[in-house]
């Protein structure tokens, strides 16, 4: 009777309320968008997202995460990049959460070793629920979210969702010009 697994998944922060309204159709429309998306790290593994080797220790994962948090967390982002960085931060967070837990890291590594890299065609996922379940649905979802992200990124950041710090920094950089 039940249709589909509702695993928690990370989508991306609505850069702009007007886009979030189109949110609902995300994985439907994605297939159309796939052919002409902007390249933004869509084929990166979690390791690549964190900029680390697959053999690194937990300590190094944590260090990489904190470093990237300092770079991408919206509170410390330079003006004009808050939206983009919030999305990056959420992705980095997802990667970190997966890799910092030994069990989920192990599971993830197994997926990787089976050749289920991220560089697969997202077209495969959408209309086939059964294969989604069998090939690690979360990864497919993940990919669809990246597509969504790319779509959003093609729109200019409106600035209405900026952190205060970002506002201030932007204001300052504008006045200093």
């Amino acid at each position: 009777m039940y249709l589909r697994t509702p695993i928690d998944r990370v989508l991306f922060s609505p850069s702009n309320p007007q886009f979030s309204r189109t949110q609902k159709v995300s994985f439907r429309v994605n297939s159309k968008l796939n052919n002409n998306v902007i390249e933004i790290s869509e084929s990166k593994s979690f390791y690549e997202l964190l900029g680390i080797q697959e053999t690194v220790s937990l300590l190094e994962i944590k260090q990489a995460y904190k470093q990237l948090a300092r770079k991408y967390h919206p509170d410390v982002s330079p003006p004009g990049r808050v939206e983009e960085n919030t999305q990056r931060f959420i992705r980095v967070q997802e990667a970190y959460e997966t890799l910092s837990d030994p069990k989920s890291r192990d599971m993830y590594d197994k997926h990787m070793s089976k050749g289920l890299h991220f560089a697969f065609s997202p077209r495969r996922k959408c209309q086939n629920d059964e294969s989604m379940e069998n090939t690690g649905e979360w990864k497919n979802r993940w990919h669809s979210q990246l597509s969504e992200l790319k779509r959003r990124n093609s729109h200019k950041d409106s600035g209405n969702n900026m952190s205060w710090g970002a506002h201030m920094r932007r204001q300052r950089s504008e006045t200093s010009l």
């Binding site: 249709l3 928690d8 990370v10 991306f12 967070q93």
Partner: peptide, 9 residues
């Protein structure tokens, strides 16, 4: 920040 989804019926 975070974004999560859950499906209901």
């Amino acid at each position: 920040p975070v974004r999560k989804e859950q499906i209901f019926t």
